[in-house]
């Protein structure tokens, strides 16, 4: 699938084909999409995940996770749940990671990068070495970096023809259930499975106007939303028909009937 179409086709899927397993290789591709995303300081060990698979992970663990995400019906249905988390211990190897980036030619001497610079400046500056400063900032940045990876993982699932979506849950319960160490904080849970909804899933979800979100030069001055660009993105499938499509209510009634759920 072309990138623009993947962005435009992604939905938060809320009905999954519970009877249809997800191929392990597809899950692997989703995880790679997250692994290869950008990360502050290339501290990739901050962003981790535990995969829970119906029929493979012990039932007690999967049932425990479903309970921790408030027994939402889509969690019962989706055969795979990826529990994304941040591991604060992943920041500890920041120095050797940066040195590897220098060695690999990613961080260049033209921009002042050297082992001495890493030791004397970067490792002592909390904006770069987050463990040297405020722990709240470190947690905030970790969540941000985790989110970057999850964003890619959502698109990768769409690219693989899968339905996907994020749910939230009781983090401490999840941490204990999955035997995570103290340094780990569960974030959001990505459900993965074949969607039981149509590809359009009722249409692209409501979004605020572009002009209200993105500014040019100063806060509040709209960046401008060129109509020809909008047309190009529509042709490419990134901008799609907005929800609700005319048949959506009937589709939801049919889905509710299929899953034995109230409408």
């Amino acid at each position: 699938m072309e990138f623009k179409r993947a962005v435009g086709t992604r939905r938060t899927t809320r009905y999954y084909q519970a009877w249809r397993p997800v191929e392990k290789e597809k899950v692997q591709k989703i995880l790679h999409a997250a692994r290869l995303q950008s990360h502050h300081g290339n501290a990739q060990e901050v962003r981790k995940a535990v995969v829970i698979t119906k029929g493979e992970t012990p039932d007690a663990v999967r049932d425990g996770l479903i309970d921790a995400v408030y027994n939402q019906p889509q969690a019962h249905q989706a055969p795979v749940a990826i529990v994304w988390c941040t591991d604060m211990a992943g920041w500890e190897p920041l120095r050797p990671t940066l040195l590897k980036l220098i060695e690999s030619g990613s961080l260049t001497s033209s921009y002042g990068w050297s082992e001495e610079f890493v030791d004397s400046v970067v490792m002592k500056t909390p904006d770069f070495n987050v463990l040297a400063g405020d722990v709240e900032f470190a947690k905030w940045l970790s969540a941000f970096e985790c989110g970057l990876g999850v964003g890619s993982a959502l698109l990768a699932a769409t690219d693989e023809g899968l339905g996907t979506g994020l749910v939230t849950g009781r983090r401490e319960q999840i941490r204990e259930l999955l035997k995570m160490p103290e340094s780990v904080i569960p974030t959001q849970i990505q459900l993965v499975g074949y969607s039981a909804e149509s590809t359009e899933a009722g249409g692209q979800r409501p979004r605020p106007d572009f002009e209200d979100l993105y500014f040019d030069g100063t806060w509040g001055t709209s960046y401008g939303n060129d109509e020809s660009v909008v047309a190009e993105l529509s042709d490419a499938g990134m901008i799609q028909a907005a929800a609700p499509l005319p048949h959506r209510k009937a589709e939801l009634r049919a889905l509710a009937g299929m899953f034995g759920l109230p409408e």
Partner: peptide, 27 residues
């Protein structure tokens, strides 16, 4: 029978209250 019970659950949902649904055995 399930559909009949779900009419009641839908009534509660329409009024902002939720009664957990029964998960079908096949899920």
């Amino acid at each position: 029978q399930l559909a009949r019970g779900n009419v009641i659950r839908s009534f509660f949902i329409a009024n902002g209250r939720r009664i957990p649904p029964e998960q079908p055995d096949w899920i």
